[in-house]
């Protein structure tokens, strides 16, 4: 396959950046998208040019490090991570546009690499539980209904890749925040901090300059882990409950 790539190049956080067009030849349909970028970078290195910087780590779809907007879609045309996207999803001769996540809360560090530290700060604000140290409790000491455990687990599969923010027309980080709130809020261990958690995480979310959620659903549609949109509804319910709660702190 021969591919024409339009890639966002930006030397550093303060550089203005621009789109640059590259030809990539002899691409195998079995290559992953990142391997195709590797081929491009080898070529650029041999030609003495600066390779295209992009984030990646596990390359098996579980770490959440990789992520770029491909032809206007976060992680490209398949609902998976960029590393698990293969060139067979494209056709010979295609022109593919590759851009970094675009959000004020995700400033570009270089080329396609963005700083997702805002997600870490949202987790720091409330994504924890108080647990006693010491020996592990018996596995069945605290019963959890199966449906709640499943929902908590589904929410916990969020890998924090940021595709939800990239796809959201408002650049909102609500699906990520809702996944964390749901994950901990469904379990008995998460109850003591439940009210404080949602309040603190929503405040941090807003402080990071993410936009507001308008329930459009693009986030859940592109999420490689299938975090359901209704977690946002659960977050809203928890926040309204916390705001009207009379619990003293």
């Amino acid at each position: 396959m021969n591919i024409t790539l339009r890639v966002w190049r930006q030397k550093g956080p303060d550089d203005k950046g621009r789109m640059v067009t590259y030809k990539v030849e002899d691409v195998s349909p079995d290559m992953s998208f990142l391997e195709m970028l590797d081929v491009l970078n080898e070529k650029l290195t041999l030609e003495g040019e600066e390779p295209v910087a992009f984030d990646h780590d596990c390359r098996e779809g579980i770490c959440g490090a990789c992520g770029v907007v491909i032809d206007g879609e976060a992680h490209g045309p398949e609902t998976t991570t960029t590393c698990q996207l293969h060139m067979r999803s494209f056709s010979d001769g295609d022109t593919i546009t590759v851009e970094p996540w675009r959000a004020k809360a995700f400033p570009v560090i270089k080329d396609l690499v963005v700083d997702r530290g805002s997600f870490d700060r949202i987790v720091q604000a409330g994504g924890y539980i108080s647990a006693p140290t010491g020996t592990a409790p018996d596995a069945h000491a605290m019963p959890v209904p199966k449906a709640d455990a499943d929902r908590a687990f589904d929410a916990a599969t969020c890998i924090g890749c940021g595709a939800c923010v990239a796809a959201c027309p408002n650049a909102s980080g609500m699906l990520f925040t809702a996944a964390k709130v749901t994950h901990l809020g469904m379990l008995p261990q998460g109850q003591p901090e439940r009210e404080a958690r949602v309040v603190q995480m929503v405040n941090q979310h807003d402080e990071e300059d993410f936009g507001g959620c308008t329930n459009i659903g693009e986030c859940a549609a592109v999420c490689p882990k299938g975090i359901p949109l209704d977690t946002i509804s659960q977050l809203n319910r928890d926040l309204l409950g916390a705001l009207t709660s009379s619990r003293a702190e």
Binding site: R6, G17, M19, V69, D71, G72, E73, T97, E99, R102, A103, K104, A105, A167, P169, N170, A171, S172, D209, F210, G211, G212, T214, N215, I216, G217, E218, A221, V222
Partner: peptide, 28 residues
């Protein structure tokens, strides 16, 4: 919220694609 959403994405995408959003959500 409109102003916030504008501020939240200072650099726009060159290519945008509608994944599943409806026309009605687009015109709110």
């Amino acid at each position: 919220l409109w102003r916030r959403a504008g501020r939240a994405r200072p650099v726009r995408y060159q290519v945008t694609k509608r994944v599943q959003r409806s026309y009605s959500s687009y015109t709110m």
